[in-house]
Design a protein around this nucleic acid. Structure first.
Lengths: 301, 301
DNA sequence: GTCATCTTGTCAAGATTTAATCTTGACAAT
DNA sequence: ATTGTCAAGATTAAATCTTGACAAGATGAC
């Protein structure tokens, strides 16, 4: 009932300007000088942009931002246009750049749109592993070298955490698999890798219980007991290996023997091996281990 | 400071209608028949409502909703009016219990399922305001009295943060609204209220940029400048009011005059009023303010 | 290399259109 | 009698229109 007429919804100039990021003046200039788009006109003569034209304008802007000249790009057909805009618009396998640029501009809507596109294309598990984590790494690097502000980093962290968190919804079926509790201990605030691991576990048929960052040791042990988990998985990123080893020893000590303790993350390979603790250098390795677990524990308490 | 002219900001009829929940026709009828308010007029004769008049209209409406007759209530002074209006509060929410119990059992799947159900039933904005926040409050209380473990609190925080974060996806249309940057400053780690506020803003037609918790002042200012935001919205929960006031002063000082600074959260009402800073005691108040923002112009000619 | 020319984004002025608002008066349901 | 809503026709305020100009950078000729 919204629009039963054949009238598709159109947008006035000011809406087109805000939606494309181009100024009203520029929209008019591009139209009259280069014929980039040809919006409908009302009886009185004011412009009305169709959604398709807004999309085209976005592409043209992307191409121009990428260095093309408006006089050249203006007449291109959508296919060629998309190709030229690819540098700035389309997330390909190597397409971290457009997202990084949106983040730098603090363009929340743009960044989320690109990330969502990627997520839907790759599926949550590979998205986490092959896209979110490299993205986080790149952001960290740029931040460390002052090429990106911490505001961009916060925006990215929040968006990624939400997207991965939503994907982490356990299904009824996943309850059938072995339960794994995911957390980091006090002092360890990096969550992204932990979320990726939990997602990987979910994809491998386990039943992840994601408790997030900075849980005191005592509560960690209590949580494992309460849930009847078979495994406690921790992530190490920032904690120095000395304190980390102490913490792990304390946990192992308080944990019943039959419950496994797994350590992942960049810091995992730097701590010393010890009895009853398994360390993982990559998510692929972790994934194989989870799959194994499913076969090991055919009978649960 | 915000408006160097001495003219207070006023609002056109449609803004008054939306903010009070009264129809434009009714506003005119009440004015001409009972003189409930007497808005300013432009040179051309159109009405311009002052904030004080909007407040009065809200009270009058509350009194009428409570059963009083408009012809009687119309002339009352604010004090008596407030007394009469005080009969209309909304019912409380049930249905927290099952979720609390799932959280206590660390039943991630059950808790998420119940929450998702609630979210889909209420929609994101009221879910945040009328469900997630009360839930968080209850959890905090139980944790403080040792009736709930911190693991449950973490689980809940993570799930809620993801759910609200996903709902916080800006749409293309939201870009049309005024841009508001949401963040907390260093030391303030509570995010839930801030997310709820951002969701409220999104629902009220603004374009929220959610930067999350603990952003240093300097980066906050940079972010506002980069995004061309009209407003910087901060949340205060745990920071003592002394340091908070210093922090706010520092931010206000570094912020251009034309950019508004809004403070919300439980701590907002405890800090001293100061030039160029607006404080909000509730999300409803915040929502009204956001809606106003869309209508604001400097003032009368 | 230098200088004229082209390209491109922005601005201003004055006319016009669209979207809101105005008043008045009517009408139906308490 | 009170009260909310609606319609008609006039008016105002805010957007948008076109045209033309201008400046900063890019391009190209010499």
């Amino acid at each position: 009932m919204t629009n039963s007429d054949d009238a598709e919804t159109t947008y006035p100039l000011r809406a087109a300007a805000r939606l494309t990021g181009l100024s009203p003046d520029l929209l008019r200039a591009w139209e009259s000088r280069y014929g980039v788009v040809k919006p409908l006109r009302t009886a009185g003569g004011t412009r009305r942009y169709r959604a398709s034209e807004l999309e085209r304008l976005r592409l043209v802007k992307a191409a121009v931002d990428a260095g093309d000249r408006i006089s050249v790009v203006a007449r291109l057909d959508p296919v060629e246009l998309a190709r030229r805009a690819a540098g700035t618009e389309k997330p390909s396998q190597a397409g971290l750049e457009p997202i990084l640029s949106a983040l730098e501009r603090l363009d929340a809507e743009g960044a989320q749109r690109l990330l969502a596109l990627q997520l839907s294309a790759m599926g949550p598990v590979s998205f986490a592993r092959e896209f979110a984590l490299p993205l986080a790494r790149e952001i960290g690097e740029r931040w460390a070298t002052n090429r990106m502000g911490i505001a961009s980093e916060h925006l990215a962290t929040g968006v990624l955490r939400s997207m991965l968190g939503s994907a982490l919804t356990p299904t009824a079926a996943s309850r059938l698999g072995p339960t794994i509790v995911f957390a980091t201990s006090t002092g360890e605030r990096h969550e992204l890798g932990l979320q990726s691991a939990a997602l990987t576990a979910l994809g491998a048929g386990a039943n992840p219980i994601y408790l997030g960052a900075e849980l005191p040791v005592e509560d960690l042990l209590g949580a494992v007991a309460n849930t009847g988990a078979a495994v406690l998985a921790l992530s190490l990123v920032t904690i120095p290996s000395g304190p980390a080893e102490q913490m792990i020893a304390a946990i192992r000590n308080g944990l019943p023997d039959e419950i496994r303790l797994w350590i992942g993350g960049p810091g995992a390979t730097e701590i010393a091996a010890s009895e009853g603790v398994e360390r993982f250098g990559s998510l692929e390795e972790f994934e194989r281990r989870v799959t194994l677990l499913g076969f090991e524990k055919s009978s649960l308490p």
